[in-house]
Design a protein around this nucleic acid. Structure first.
Lengths: 217, 217
DNA sequence: GTATGTTTCAAACACTCGTTTAATTGAAAA
DNA sequence: TTTTCAATTAAACGAGTGTTTGAAACATAC
């Protein structure tokens, strides 16, 4: 149970968020009760409603915490990409958007995997409430991703770019979200210890190869 | 609500399964109550436990129904692929495994999308009970997929094939599972009406391009 | 017709859930 | 010290959950 929040000194708010993000990613939103969260965080049950208002608000708070750290890192990487000038390679664009994810992993054990699983669940969740919240508040990230890819491959039709972007997102969420489980299989079957960096290193040529594939219509 | 089960003549069992597979895909397993299922199927609440035993058994029954139809189609396609002999192209292998999914869509409106969403949820679900059930009972499908890809690209290291297979799975689940929502965006933004066949047509070059990408270690 | 076995039904069961309440604690401000 | 306000606590609330029950309805065979 290696949370990066010091359970002895951390505030009640922080301990709730730390426990919640782990359990939400591990078990899902509906399957994670407030009692499970508060007992893991060793705080009183009512403190969730006191500090966050409701369970739904807690879920959004967990997302906000991740997205804030992510967008901060992403702004730096994007600036660095633009500073280089000229037409970026697809690989460079992918690296730009993946590095903040890797940074998340250093900030907190399995941070990237946890966040990707949360993102995957948000897309699947009931009626898409959470998906709309995430897209509404952080849709600009997707837009910047789209724009950067457009610069790397200007001839690709907009609709094709749209679909390939989502194909890539699927690979990302699936592979990084499941990197722990897949990594264990990889270690057992191929005697290869793979961490997040290795997964990303394998992902980039795959995604770039798919993205640059000829359009056959 | 266009289910393909005739609600007036279909047996209670069939009506429950039809309602359940739609609601499970749309809302998730935990978020779908037996009362919601039985009221949609217009049957008595207790009939689920009578015919299936428990909610968990119903979930497995829904999967079995999909997988049985899928593996039947897949056996035909695989035989056809092997009959051609020689080294298959990656595109041919992908087509082999995607056609049964498309067949599912003709058998039942949105069948492929529903099944992919179910599969995505199964992978994410609590503690992976369902994932283990699916992998245990239908893991041979994944093994055959792996083997066919190996024939198409013999030089690709086994571990690299393993990871690229799962990258492809991620794209598949994400894109086909969300094909309805993504199709609506595509129709609105690009004036392009896209059905499942169009998504598959776009997927194949993307996946093949990724799979055939050079290995950079 | 009666008997037999299957299927349906309304009602209740025990349980968990998110949320609320009112009392209590703690520490800083007056 | 007294006041004040934020934070914590135990307990309860009402709603919703999967499941069980025993009787009723149905169909089939004798």
């Amino acid at each position: 149970m290696a949370d990066c929040v010091d359970q002895t000194t951390a505030s009640t708010r922080e301990r709730i968020i730390a426990a919640a993000e782990y359990l939400f990613a591990e078990r899902g939103f509906a399957e994670t009760s407030l009692r499970l969260i508060t007992s893991r965080a060793e705080v009183n049950l009512a403190s969730v409603n006191y500090h966050f208002g409701s369970k739904k608000d807690l879920i959004q708070a967990v997302f906000d915490r991740f997205m804030d750290r992510l967008t901060a890192e992403l702004a730096i990487e994007l600036a660095s990409l633009r500073q280089q000038g000229g037409k970026p390679t697809v690989e460079a664009v992918l690296t730009t958007f993946l590095r903040p994810l890797q940074a998340l992993d250093q900030l907190e054990p399995n941070g990237a995997s946890i966040f990707m699983r949360l993102l995957g669940r948000a897309y699947a969740e009931t009626q898409g409430h959470l998906r709309r919240f995430v897209l509404g508040k952080y849709g600009h990230v997707l837009a910047e991703f789209t724009q950067a890819l457009k610069q790397a491959y200007p001839d690709l039709p907009a609709s094709e770019l749209f679909w390939r972007l989502h194909f890539m997102l699927g690979s990302l969420v699936f592979a990084i979200g499941g990197s722990n489980a897949l990594g264990e299989i990889s270690a057992a079957d191929f005697n290869e210890q793979v961490g997040l960096d290795d997964v990303v290193a394998r992902l980039i040529p795959f995604l770039a190869g798919g993205f640059k594939a000829p359009v056959t219509r």
